[in-house]
Design a protein around this nucleic acid. Sequence first.
DNA 1: GAGATATTTGCGGGGATGTGCAAGTGATGG
DNA 2: CCATCACTTGCACATCCCCGCAAATATCTC
Lengths: 109, 109
Amino acid sequence: MAKSIPIPTRLDPKNLGKLRPEFFKALGDPVRLAIVAHMAQQGEPSTVTAVSGCCGIDFSGVSRHLKILREAGIVKAEKRGRETFYSLQTEKITKTLRGLSDILERMAK
Amino acid sequence: MAKSIPIPTRLDPKNLGKLRPEFFKALGDPVRLAIVAHMAQQGEPSTVTAVSGCCGIDFSGVSRHLKILREAGIVKAEKRGRETFYSLQTEKITKTLRGLSDILERMAK
DNA sequence: GAGATATTTGCGGGGATGTGCAAGTGATGG
DNA sequence: CCATCACTTGCACATCCCCGCAAATATCTC
């Protein structure tokens, strides 16, 4: 009998039930998606004011959107002096996306 | 000079701007996420009534949720007789998720 | 301390969203 | 046909969400 290959935890079908709607909900808004795109192209941490330039709404709205993205684990905030630098949590995001992909693909076969 | 390797279209950073919020919004609801999980575990096309069992809301609501998932390209519907069979569009989903992952990862470096 | 700058938060309005119930549509079976 | 079954859609209601504006907070500069 062939030796069984251990399946990484994130490939366990049970993890399907652990998916948090908040993660996808956070990406399910055009403004927030624009913010994510902007931050990805920026490559370096951005302030609220810097991000505001890309999405045509008041900066207070941007602040709120960033909070939602932060609580969803998509972005992390770092306070330095009077400004807050937001940056994408690329690894966290790709882990989630690829984890879901792998589970779906595995279950489809 | 080294031969340049062509980058697949979906890895083009410009595709970031083409991401449809509807896709993520569709997954950003607990009931719809439960439906997706249920359908993945099922492995075969499910009817509305079959899906209704998994999420504790009226079947009319499930019908509406499935419509949203269908319009987001997450699910496809096939009518046979008086019932409609819904099935996951696994390949489409994984393409989208992995496409985003790849872009983000590439831009992060 | 006074004033400027960066961000967050409270408030309120307008619109989107999820839900159950009931009625409508369309295919199937007696 | 008429009843039934599977599903979709109209309606009403409650809730949530996005937004701008204004006020609050916190930090820096002079």
